[in-house]
Lab assay of single mutants.
Amino acid sequence: MQRVNMIMAESPGLITICLLGYLLSAECTVFLDHENANKILNRPKRYNSGKLEEFVQGNLERECMEEKCSFEEAREVFENTERTTEFWKQYVDGDQCESNPCLNGGSCKDDINSYECWCPFGFEGKNCELDVTCNIKNGRCEQFCKNSADNKVVCSCTEGYRLAENQKSCEPAVPFPCGRVSVSQTSKLTRAETVFPDVDYVNSTEAETILDNITQSTQSFNDFTRVVGGEDAKPGQFPWQVVLNGKVDAFCGGSIVNEKWIVTAAHCVETGVKITVVAGEHNIEETEHTEQKRNVIRIIPHHNYNAAINKYNHDIALLELDEPLVLNSYVTPICIADKEYTNIFLKFGSGYVSGWGRVFHKGRSALVLQYLRVPLVDRATCLRSTKFTIYNNMFCAGFHEGGRDSCQGDSGGPHVTEVEGTSFLTGIISWGEECAMKGKYGIYTKVSRYVNWIKEKTKLT
């Protein structure tokens, strides 16, 4: 034993070699072989497995989906700052455009905790909710729209109204504003409101030439003092309507412009014939205590009207009353817009006519005020429907199939267009061939041609 100890002390290297040989010859039971080890760690190889990531292109799944990435790591994937920024906006807080917040056709661009709407022409605001041009839906104005110097929408209202708090709607500024039905039992019968379409306001006024200088022999019209197929109006439903009495009662109609003036057809009036105007009328054979009678003290036909040349060209006249009318729910003026808007309103496509005229061709006159909704007829169809001249200051309205029309005794009465609950004068009943005849239409004086003249002559002093 002493000898062994001496050998170990003198030859430590020998001992180490012996131990190493023993270990190498022993069977290893701690580690699995290569094949079995792979069965336990069965993990798919990654895209760049075996390579240094710093030297390969980034992978979106590896960089940002398996674990949260930084902007720089995302930049490695896209290799483009702009594309990385677009991805980053949604990656950080989701897609803010998912709810489609942009209105009126706006395009949404996502941002971090926010979004941006790219608005089409005519709109602005956070969600493109603000109209900035009158060309689109009248700028959301209830009545009139004008573009300011910086191309912003400025709404306005006709006389007797003021802008509401929203700067879009119009509200009454006087007790009985024009064009409004205020009798409670008839307010439910107000005709369907007309909503502004998209309009090209630059070209809204037709490029028409008034044929002022045409000389033409007097034409022989049949029954051209021209509501057939209409309905009984309720008291106060058309408070701007008046009836004219002269040699015979209810020979023509008219509309209240203001307390002192009536507008009617020029062919209705004769110099030297006494005319009485009755406002607030409903049943011409009954006294309903809503009527107001006034005498006409002055007749002003349009300066281009000449019955000797043509009885229905420039067929418009103004009547001055001896005493002002007292405005109330049964006696209310009709609204008159400017030339541009009167023309736009007419193009809405349908209007209402009213009167006490004959209820059928050569038949009896109506006792109760009649009204009828009539569609506008395109000019080409209008011209083809008659052998008589249709001037540019006239328009056609009615039904091709016949059966409904204005008729004798309705002449001078109103053709009105309702705009968001307020009625505007767009025409004056003038003439036609018979009444409600198939293929024939009622012919009306186009008020847009005469609004400046009306307003100039009827100013209240």
Rank of each mutant, 00 (worst) to 15 (best):
Q2W: 15
M6C: 12
M6Q: 10
M8A: 14
E10L: 12
P12D: 06
L14E: 02
L14W: 12
I17A: 05
L19F: 13
L20N: 02
G21A: 13
Y22D: 02
T29I: 14
D33Y: 04
E35G: 12
N36S: 11
A37S: 14
I40N: 15
L41Y: 12
P44C: 04
K45C: 04
K45H: 08
K45W: 08
R46P: 14
K51D: 10
K51A: 14
G58P: 15
N59E: 09
R62D: 05
E66A: 06
E73H: 09
E73A: 08
R75M: 08
R83H: 15
T85E: 09
E86H: 14
W88P: 15
W88Q: 15
W88K: 11
Y91V: 14
Y91K: 13
Y91Q: 15
C97A: 00
P101I: 03
L103P: 01
N104F: 03
N104A: 03
S107W: 04
C108E: 00
N113A: 10
S114P: 03
Y115V: 03
E116L: 03
C117Q: 00
W118D: 02
W118N: 01
C119A: 00
G122V: 01
F123C: 00
E124Y: 04
E124K: 02
G125C: 00
L130W: 07
L130M: 15
N135L: 10
N135K: 15
I136H: 10
K137S: 09
K137T: 06
E142R: 04
F144K: 02
C145G: 02
K146H: 06
K146D: 12
K146A: 11
D150L: 10
D150C: 04
K152Q: 10
V153C: 04
C155P: 00
S156F: 10
N166K: 02
K168A: 10
A173G: 07
V174W: 05
F176H: 10
P177A: 09
R180A: 05
V181P: 13
T186W: 08
S187P: 15
K188P: 15
K188I: 12
T190L: 07
V195Q: 13
P197S: 11
P197K: 14
V199N: 13
V199G: 12
Y201N: 14
V202N: 12
N203Y: 09
N203M: 09
N203R: 10
A207I: 11
E208V: 07
I210N: 05
D212I: 09
I214W: 07
T215G: 09
Q219M: 13
D223Q: 13
G229P: 11
G229V: 08
G229Y: 13
E231Y: 04
E231V: 11
A233N: 07
K234W: 11
K234A: 11
K234F: 13
P235V: 07
P235G: 05
G236L: 06
G236Q: 05
G236I: 06
V242L: 02
L244I: 10
L244Q: 01
N245R: 12
G246H: 08
G246Q: 05
F251G: 05
F251K: 08
G254E: 00
V257N: 00
N258E: 02
K260L: 09
W261P: 00
W261H: 02
W261C: 01
W261N: 00
V263S: 02
A265T: 04
A266D: 00
A266L: 02
H267E: 02
V269N: 01
V269Y: 04
E270S: 05
E270M: 08
E270V: 12
T271P: 12
T271N: 14
G272P: 12
V273Q: 05
T276P: 02
V277C: 03
E281C: 10
I284A: 08
I284N: 07
E285Y: 07
R294T: 01
R294M: 02
N295K: 12
N295C: 04
V296L: 03
I297P: 02
I297W: 04
I297K: 13
P301N: 08
N306T: 03
N306E: 05
A307N: 07
A307M: 11
A308Y: 12
A308E: 09
K311W: 04
H314I: 01
H314T: 02
D315K: 00
D315C: 01
I316N: 00
A317S: 03
A317G: 03
E320P: 00
L321Y: 01
D322N: 07
L325Y: 03
V326I: 11
N328P: 00
N328S: 10
Y330P: 01
T332F: 03
T332P: 00
C335N: 00
C335F: 01
D338G: 08
D338L: 03
Y341A: 09
I344H: 15
K347C: 03
K347E: 10
F348L: 08
Y352A: 06
V353C: 03
W356H: 07
W356D: 02
G357V: 14
R358H: 14
F360A: 08
K362G: 11
L367T: 13
L369F: 13
Q370C: 05
V374I: 08
A380Y: 14
T381H: 13
C382E: 01
T386S: 12
T386D: 04
F388K: 14
F388D: 06
T389H: 13
T389A: 14
M394D: 02
F395S: 02
C396V: 02
G402H: 06
R404H: 15
R404S: 15
C407T: 04
Q408D: 13
G409P: 09
G409T: 07
D410K: 15
S411H: 13
G412S: 08
G421E: 05
G421T: 05
T426W: 00
G427R: 00
G427I: 00
W431R: 09
E434T: 12
A436K: 12
K438T: 13
K440H: 14
Y441W: 04
I443Y: 06
Y444H: 03
K446E: 05
R449Q: 12
N452R: 10
K455R: 12
K455D: 03
K459V: 12
